[in-house]
Amino acid sequence: MTVRRRFLLASSLARLIQRERGGLRQIEGFFPEQRDRSSWVRLEENRALLILKTAGPNGEAEEQTEVPVGHAHALLDVCAGEIDYTRTKLRIGDREVLIDQFNRPRDLHFITVEFDSEAEGRGFHPLPWFGPEITAEARYSNQAIALRGVEQYQDAPLSDEALNGLLDTLENRFPDQPRSAINRPAKQRAVSKAPAGPASGDGRTAQVNLDDIEAAMMAEMERTLQKGRPD
C-alpha cells in the first residue's frame, strides 16, 4: 500500500526546481467517478499506462497496466476530464519527492511524498521549502482537479527560509529524517514533444549554476514581497 502526503509549493520555487532539474510532461485522463474505485490513463513520454485504484478494508490498492500509446490517445478522447502537468523527481535522503507543475486545467504547484506505510508517512518531517499540507483536502487530488477543477487556489507563501531550504536540498544538504541515506539525484531528461510534449519551450533541460539561480530567485522574491506591501 502506498501512502502519500501532498503539500503546496510556491510557484517561484517550482520554476527554480524545473529550471535546475528538468522534468517529464504527463497527461492523465480520468473516467467518471465510482464509489469504491477510480480509473485513469496516463501518457508519459513514449509509454502509456491504464491505472485502477480500488478501496478495500486494508486501504487503497493501485494496479497499473501498460497499453499501446495509440490506445491511450483514444482513451483520452473519451475521458471525463484531463490534467496536464510536468513532474520533477527529487531525492531527500532515500526518499523520493515528486514536484508537479500543472498546466491544465490551471496553474497549480504541488509536492507529493510517497511512503510504504502510515507510520513512515507520520514520521516524515516536511522541509522548510514545503508549503501548507493539503493531504486531507480531497479537492486537490489529481482526480478531483481533472473532473471538477479548482475554483479557488492561493499560491504558497515565499520566504527567505523557503528559498534557502530549497537551495540546501538541491545541493544535497538535508535536515535529519527517520532514514538518512543520501543518493545524488540524476539530472532528468525533458520529455519529447510526442506524445506528451517537452517540459520547456526548447525541449532541453537547462544547465545552470545554483549561485545564478539564487541571485535570480532573490530578485524575484523581492518583487513578490514588494507587491504585497502597502504604498
Rank of each mutant, 00 (worst) to 15 (best):
K89T: 14
Y85T: 06
E222R: 10
R148G: 13
I92S: 06
D160R: 11
G197V: 05
R5M: 02
P230V: 13
A186T: 06
A136T: 07
Y140T: 04
E33A: 15
R35H: 08
G29T: 12
T224F: 10
N209Y: 05
E120Y: 07
E82I: 15
E118V: 13
I182C: 09
R91T: 12
A156I: 03
S39Y: 01
R47P: 01
L127K: 06
A10Q: 14
L158I: 13
D77M: 09
P128A: 10
R223C: 03
A136W: 01
P68H: 11
G81S: 09
E118H: 09
N142F: 06
Q101L: 10
L90K: 08
L147H: 07
G121H: 03
N58R: 14
L24D: 00
L166C: 03
G165C: 03
E151T: 15
R139W: 00
D212P: 01
L163K: 04
C79E: 01
D160L: 07
G70H: 12
N164K: 10
A48K: 06
A10R: 05
E137A: 07
R204F: 14
A80L: 08
W129H: 12
W129A: 04
V97K: 01
E63I: 15
R25Y: 02
R25W: 02
M217Y: 07
L76N: 08
E60H: 11
N103I: 13
R122P: 00
T88D: 02
P175Q: 03
T135A: 09
L210H: 06
A74W: 03
R148L: 08
E133I: 10
A119T: 12
R95M: 09
R42K: 13
L52Y: 09
R106G: 06
H73V: 12
T2L: 11
H71L: 15
E118G: 05
R189V: 12
I134T: 02
G201V: 12
Y153C: 05
R47S: 15
A215S: 11
A119I: 07
L98D: 14
P157V: 04
L24E: 11
L158K: 00
N183L: 10
S39G: 12
D176K: 08
A55L: 14
R47V: 05
A74N: 10
P32N: 11
L147M: 07
C79F: 05
L8P: 00
A206G: 00
A55N: 14
L16M: 14
D202Y: 08
V3E: 08
N46S: 13
Q64A: 14
R47M: 11
E214G: 03
G121K: 04
S12D: 11
E20A: 14
M221R: 15
L163A: 02
G70A: 14
Y85A: 06
G56F: 08
I213T: 02
T54C: 12
I111Q: 04
V69K: 05
T112Y: 01
T169F: 01
I17P: 01
R87V: 10
N209P: 00
Q18T: 11
L43T: 01
A181Q: 12
P32A: 13
